[in-house]
Design a protein around this nucleic acid. Structure first.
Lengths: 139, 139
DNA sequence: TATTGTTATACTCTATAACTATA
DNA sequence: TATAGTTATAGAGTATAACAATA
């Protein structure tokens, strides 16, 4: 499976790359999601990351402990925690996200710009067609 | 990152799918590699899977315990273990690999045949260009 | 000395499921 | 009853590094 192999390589490079920031790939995903949509609640985050809320809970625990984010109680619904980045979390976001984009760009650099666009377009179509194909339930 | 999202979905589907066979994705990878190249040694397998030999050791332990494969000492170099599938491993290989291919085919079905070819070609080019871009060391 | 494989440690992620507190 | 979050459990995968046997 070609896609798997390419992805594994990118994943490993990313991992290596993100370690400089003290982040795992999953933690980077959290940072990227919360950084681009502060006020997100844990349930929403779980859905976006395609993992369970239990897992999100542990992820947030570790990142809160690392001083990157905080849980804020929602004043209107006391079951909900809104997620926000700390100043340090925002600093890391501002640093790590562009660095990651640059890494991806450098990995894609072997393709011509129009090939990159073609690849992106095909992946988008594939993404949608996977969603519509049969039942897919993430809790 | 489009590639990551698409891959995650495929990964999750595969996981779900492979569970019927009692396999994790990593174990499937081992089965597929050894099944297509019996006599492989652990070091070679580690390189193909892009993980360390320590990890391979654990993977093999679990799969040997599950009765799917065996380590055979190499008569010429007593440091080496050659990996072979048991009859049950081969049966599973013959069952799981086509099933996995069919799953992938069904996920790709939303794309036209020429789009599938185009995607494959782009991924192959990307794969190669990643390899050649800067240092990449898997131990 | 270098290589193959093993072992040990520690951490992250994951699924699953029971639990609480709110709604 | 349903939802948001928590906790507990168990297992898998991973990196790292020290180790034994063999070359």
């Amino acid at each position: 499976m070609r896609l798997a192999r390419v992805y594994d390589k990118i994943q490993r490079r990313s991992q290596q790359h993100l370690r400089r920031f003290g982040l795992t790939v999953s933690q980077f995903d959290v940072l990227a999601q919360v950084g681009s949509a502060e006020g997100l609640c844990q349930q929403e985050l779980a859905e976006r990351l395609l993992v369970t809320k239990g897992n999100v809970c542990g992820l947030i625990d570790r990142m809160e402990q690392a001083g990157l984010m905080v849980r804020r109680p929602d004043p209107e619904d006391r079951r909900i925690h809104r997620l926000e980045l700390t100043p340090e979390g925002r600093r890391l976001y501002a640093e790590a996200v562009p660095a990651q984009e640059q890494l991806i760009a450098s990995l894609l650099a072997g393709l011509e710009p129009e090939e990159q666009r073609a690849l992106h377009g095909l992946l988008r179509r594939l993404d949608r067609s996977i969603d519509s194909s049969s039942c897919l339930s993430y809790r």
